[in-house]
Every structure is written in C-alpha cells, then in structure tokens.
C-alpha cells in the first residue's frame, strides 16, 4: 500500500509512544513498580512499528520478546495501559496481573506471549495453519530474534510452513546479540535469511533501523501470504541500545560494551532519523513533533497513575484460571 502522510505520522507517533512506554517501564522497574523483569526494545522500534502497522485486527501476531512486544502491540492497536498494568502486577493488566509480562489481546490477534525463546516457531505454525483453514485471508506475523533462530524448532516450523504454504511472515529481529553472546559466535553465516531460502521460503534482508524499508518488505510478504502464496521471511538488522535485561550487565561474553560503541549505534536511532526525514519532507513541523512528544508523555503519566491506582488481583481468581469450565 502507498503510505499517505497520515500513515507516516501514525508510524512516527507509534515509535515515539513505544520509546516512552519503554522508558516508563524501565523507570517502573527501577522504582519497584514493575515486579518481574524488562527487556528493553530501544533500537528496534522501526522494526516493530514498521512490521505491525496497518495489519488487520484478525491477523495473528506473535510479537518479538524485546520490549515484551510493545512496538508491535501499539502498532496493531493494542493497549499500552493493559501492558503496563500487567507489568505492575495489577488486576487491570492484560492478563489480570497473573502473567507479569506476557501480553494477550485475542480480539486483536495477539493470542499470547511465551517465556521460552524459540517456541514461536511451532506455535505460530499452528496460528498459520488456523489462518489458512479459516480461509479469510488472515496472516500470521511471527517474530523471533537472532538468539531464537538457534533453536531446532525453527527447522521444523520453517519446513512445514513452506510445505503447507501457510500465510506466515517470519520476521527476525537480528540485533546481533543473544543476551551476552554475539551472533558471530552462535551462527556460521552472515544472514539468518539464508536459513529460510533453504526451505524454499523467499527471504529478504532489510535495514531494521529504517521503518519504511521494514514496512515495505513486510507488506509485500503480507500481500503474498493473503494471496495464498505461502510464507516469507524478513531479516531486519537492528541495534540493541540497552543491556539484555534491565539491570543485567551490558557485556559481550563477559566484556563490557563501550560507551563509544553504544554512542555509535545511537546515531542510527530510528526515531531521530525518521523524524528528520518527515521534517525535511514537510510531513511534520517542529510544533507537530513537540506535540507528539508531549502527548506521549502525558499518555504515559496517565497510564502510570492508572496502574498505580489499580487494585492487586484477588487471589481467588487463580483457581478459576487453570481450567475452562
């Protein structure tokens, strides 16, 4: 689809909201409001928002675990407030405060989030199979990282998605780091996309810091999937600005990443570069940019207050959740 100015503004706004939500979640963790842990998505907003914008509500989405999916969730129309409340352990959370950091919004195609990396492959295969069987031209967006690509489950699911011609768009967020281990010590080739072509799945490598490049690649794959032409894969090369998990050491193996290295990465900040582009093209004015920023900050402050004010879940719900009646 041809992006209109309003679409570009939506994408910019969503990236800003994603970053602000990431920041407030980190702050919440540091203040003891977020109870479990948090894996920041700073640096991969262009991929998340570029991939998940302008999908259908009934398209299935397996968001990438970085940021616990926030960029994808917000782009697909999910609730940041439900996300934050879940992290605060409150009854208003997306999973009633039971999950800590998983997100589910079935009406919006988000059927759940996993704690085990690489489980995306067999499970998304099932969502893709359902999408095909429903016959409503739905697609499944299934995201994983370079770390996840090391799982053997990738083989089984890539293979079957290709054999069964399922409407799945496999998206790899390759930021080059799996917790503390660099991809150069975990994968023998340069591009993870090569794994897909081995199964006859068309694959492209895109600059994951460029939201338009990501969006165009994903949309092309989505259109193919809707047309019954089977799965595709997109590998987006991104950067991980923060440590693996907030509070964990920021190391490669056991050696700290340097400030210079991080500063160099941040020159590619997808929000800053996209903003510059939109200003230059006259899609946004400086006043628009300021308003978007202020609105996002106000939204986050309101969310934070709502979550703080929300109740802790009543433990009597636990028994009702194990089995459906």
């Amino acid at each position: 689809m041809k992006l209109k100015n309003d679409d570009l503004i939506f994408m910019y706004k969503t990236m800003v909201r994603t970053r602000k939500l990431d920041e407030i979640t980190i702050k919440g963790l540091q203040e003891g409001k977020v109870l479990a842990f948090y894996h920041s998505s700073q640096g991969s907003e262009a991929l998340a928002v570029g991939a998940a914008s302008f999908l259908r509500p009934d398209d299935y989405l397996w968001a990438h675990h970085r940021g616990h999916g926030i960029g994808y969730i917000l782009a697909k129309g999910g609730s940041g407030r439900d996300f934050l409340a879940e992290h605060y352990g409150k009854a208003t959370g997306s999973c009633l405060g039971v999950s800590g950091f998983h997100f589910a919004d079935p009406e919006n195609g988000a059927l759940g989030a996993a704690g085990t990396i690489g489980s995306v492959f067999p499970m998304s295969l099932g969502w893709g199979l359902a999408a095909k069987k429903h016959g409503r031209q739905q697609v499944t967006i299934a995201c994983f990282g370079d770390g996840g690509s090391n799982r053997g489950t990738l083989h089984e699911a890539f293979n079957l998605s290709s054999v069964w011609k399922l409407p799945i768009v496999w998206i790899c967020d390759n930021n080059g780091m799996a917790q503390y281990t660099p991809i150069t010590d975990a994968y023998a080739k340069d591009d993870i996309a090569d794994l897909a072509t081995g199964y006859d799945i068309p694959a492209v490598v895109v600059d994951g810091m460029d939201i338009i490049a990501v969006h165009e690649a994903v949309q092309a794959a989505v259109e193919k999937a809707r047309a019954g032409e089977g799965p595709s894969m997109i590998e987006a090369k991104t950067k991980r600005f923060r440590e693996h998990s907030i509070g964990s050491p920021d190391v490669v193996h056991n050696q700290p990443r340097t400030d210079e290295e991080i500063a160099e990465m941040k020159k590619l900040d997808p929000i800053i570069t996209f903003k510059a582009k939109l200003l230059e093209q006259g899609v946004l004015t400086k006043a628009d940019v300021e308003k978007i920023n202020n609105d996002a900050e106000a939204e986050m402050a309101e969310m934070d207050q709502f979550c703080v004010d929300s109740q802790i879940p009543d433990p009597s719900i636990l028994n009702t959740l194990v089995y459906a009646e």
Partner: peptide, 9 residues
C-alpha cells in the same frame, strides 16, 4: 497458556 493469559485464551 489459559492461566498465564488471565483466562483470555
């Protein structure tokens, strides 16, 4: 997954 997602799925 039913439990974990607050009974939503």
């Amino acid at each position: 997954w039913r439990f974990l997602h607050g009974g939503k799925v």
